[in-house]
Design a protein around this nucleic acid. Structure first.
Lengths: 184, 184
DNA sequence: GTCTATACACCGATAGAC
DNA sequence: GTCTATCGGTGTATAGAC
C-alpha cells in the first residue's frame, strides 16, 4: 500500500473543485495523485463516479468537522457564529476555492450527487437555525436567516471568483454574526 | 439559410447553462440545434470556443435588455428595483436556470471567458449602485449594497437549485428592493 | 498495489459531395 | 448551408504482468 486511500481522496478534491465533474478527467486525476489509471481503478472499482462520491463524502466530513463543529459548541451564539466565520475563511481559502455543492448541481451530474448536495445544504441550514433559535429568534425567523446566510456565502463565492478579488467573500463572512443576531 | 444564426445561438444557451463548458459536447449541441457537426462549424469556424463566446454575448445582451434596462429608466428608485426583480424571475426561470456567469468561472474555461464574466458582474453592480446613489446613499454604501444584491441573487440560484425548490430565490428577489433602500 | 498495454466510445474538428 | 464520412486525439475502463 503506497498511498493511504484517504490520502488519495485528499488529492482528488482540488481536481473536482477546480474543473467540475466532466472537467475532472482521469488524466488530470492521474497527474494529481501520481497514480496510473489502473491503480485508480484498483481503489475505485466503479471508476470516476465512485471517485466523485468519495470526494463528496470526504469534503462533507471535513466541512462538518471544521465549519459545523463550532456551531455545536456550548459557547454563546455570537461566539459560535464567529468561529464559523473563521472556519469558512480557511475552508474556502478566503473565497478562492469553489464549493463542491455548487459544482455538483450541474446537469452533467448524477442524481445521487444531487440528493447528497440537498442533504448537505439542509444540514448546514439546520445547524445555523439551531444557534439562532437558542439566541431567541422564532423558528421561522431562525430558519430564514440561516438560509440567508448560506445564500450569502454561496453567492460571495461566485462573485469573489468572478471578480478575482477576495474582498467580497471576506466582507460577507466577517459581517455574518452581527447580521444574523441583529434584533428583528 | 435554414436557420438564422441568432436562432442557433438561442438553442445553444440551455446546453451550456445545463451542462457547463466541458459538458456541452458537440453531440448535445448537435441534438439541441438539429444541425450536424459540419454545419455547426460552418456557422462557428473556431468551433466550440466560438459557440461559447456567442452564447456569452447573446445572454449578456439579453440580460442587459431585460434585467439592466429597467434600472436605467426614469422611474423612482423603488420602482426600478422592483422592475428588476420581476425581470430576474423571468430571466432565471424562478431560480431554476443556472447563471452562465457562475458556469464560466470554472477552471475548465478559457481566460477570455473569465474577463467577460468580470465585466458583466461589474456592469451589473455599477447599474445597481447608480440607482442607489440616486436614492440618496453614499457612493461607498451604494456600491456595497449593490454588490450584496448580486451576491444574494447568485447565492439564491445555487441554493434554489441545490434544494430543488424555488422558494429561496423568489423570497430573495422579492425582498431586494426594500432591503436595498432601507435607511442606513 | 502499481505498472504497461490496450479496448472501444466519444471528443472536437475537417474534407468534400451536393 | 447542410450533409456523410472520416481524421487524430482523448475519454473511461479493463486485462494481465509483476
Amino acid at each position: 500500500m503506497a498511498l493511504d486511500k484517504n490520502e488519495i481522496v485528499r488529492k482528488l478534491v482540488p481536481v473536482f473543485r477546480t474543473f467540475g465533474y466532466e472537467g475532472a478527467t482521469l488524466s488530470r486525476i492521474s497527474k494529481a495523485t501520481g497514480l496510473g489509471r489502473a491503480s485508480l481503478y484498483h481503489h475505485f472499482p466503479h471508476g470516476k463516479q465512485e471517485m466523485a462520491q468519495a470526494v463528496l463524502n470526504y469534503v462533507n466530513e471535513w466541512f462538518s468537522g471544521t465549519v459545523l463543529e463550532p456551531l455545536r459548541s456550548s459557547q454563546q451564539p455570537v461566539e459560535r457564529l464567529s468561529a464559523m466565520s473563521d472556519s469558512l475563511n480557511r475552508f474556502y481559502n478566503c473565497g478562492q476555492d469553489t464549493c463542491l455543492l455548487s459544482i455538483f448541481t450541474l446537469g452533467e451530474c448524477h442524481d445521487s450527487f444531487k440528493s447528497h448536495v440537498q442533504r448537505a445544504l439542509n444540514t448546514w441550514i439546520e445547524h445555523l437555525a439551531q444557534v439562532l433559535t437558542e439566541a431567541g429568534l422564532s423558528g421561522e425567523q431562525a430558519h430564514q436567516r440561516a438560509e440567508d446566510a448560506v445564500i450569502q456565502i454561496q453567492g460571495a463565492l461566485i462573485v469573489t471568483r468572478g471578480l478575482g478579488c477576495t474582498k467580497a467573500f471576506e466582507r460577507i463572512v466577517q459581517q455574518l454574526p452581527e447580521q444574523l443576531l441583529k434584533p428583528v
